[in-house]
Write a protein that binds this DNA or RNA. Structure first.
Lengths: 159, 159
DNA sequence: CGTTTGCTAGACACATTGACCAGTTATCGA
DNA sequence: TCGATAACTGGTCAATGTGTCTAGCAAACG
């Protein structure tokens, strides 16, 4: 299997991650390649889906949502996951949700303004009919902030 | 408490999220405000930390890491969390890690190339001395992709 | 061994940026 | 209610970057 990215791609991605505001021209200067090359590489990375986008990264904590928690939902088998996912999607505090192994379970990341507010969010979540049980884990500290950069390097080295 | 963001901020963030490549000038045209205003708002949002950055969003799946899992680590109380976090940081497949409620536990998001590869990643994680027990949940499907946009709207409406 | 693909290096018109400015509302505290 | 401060407008300017195109060259591929 041929790697999806090569060493130049990695350097480009790392450069963009470090200084997102530099343009294609400046990037080409830093990487010592022609501008067209950088442009082509970027287009290719986006086309392949390796780069999903350049949207602004928002910090829930800065918006006042300083409490993060993970909640496991046991849902009624019959209804299926989709209606539950649709319900969760209507709650802004639910940041993401995955179905996980172990009969009919869902793992969600949620945020709240405070521990008291967390109760409100949880109540809103479990108010839905198809949810049988919920169990919450409060995040105390972020030991390792979300990152994907090391993965690119590894993918290029072809692990 | 005064909101950290107002309605214009929300529209700006939503616009940037929808079309990240538009510049300040185009944004000002869409929002029907002066360019300087957009510039000032953007600077303010970044300065406040509401916008953490504009880095490229990478998709692990597109890099060949199609398997996502959540792993709970029970760590030895004595050593503390930091050495464990340092160990986890050296493993590219560990995308994030949180300390969570429940004595000395850590929740990590990890990715792997396949289920077999997942075993290798887990082995690498638990090879560390301070880790007593690990329990893994494999993510079957992404029901709700990571999002923060709805939160901004809610913060502005001041929930 | 010809063809395709990727990179270089340069060109061009055009749009955008960053940095200003003066003048005009809003907002808020006293 | 008034004054001061902060925010927004609408405009300028030079400098820079963008999108798009060209042609030549080298390596990889079948």
């Amino acid at each position: 299997m041929t790697p999806t990215v090569d060493e130049l791609d990695v350097r480009l991605v790392e450069l963009l991650a470090a200084e997102p505001r530099i343009g294609v021209l400046e990037a080409s200067r830093r990487l010592k390649v022609a501008r067209g090359t950088v442009q082509a590489r970027l287009d290719r990375l986006v086309a392949r889906g390796v780069i999903k986008g350049f949207g602004p990264e928002l910090d829930p904590a800065a918006l006042g949502y300083g409490v993060t928690a993970f909640i496991t939902l046991e849902i009624r088998q019959s209804g299926g996951h989709d209606p539950v996912a649709a319900h969760l999607a209507t709650i802004p505090e639910v940041l993401e949700a995955y179905t996980i192994t172990g009969g009919g379970d869902l793992l969600c990341r949620i945020v709240a303004r405070s521990n008291a507010d967390l109760q409100r969010v949880i109540d809103e979540i479990v108010s839905y009919d198809g949810i049988l049980r919920a169990s919450t884990l409060i995040a105390l500290a972020e030991q390792l902030p979300y990152r994907t950069l090391p993965l690119v390097g590894k993918a290029a080295r072809h692990g």
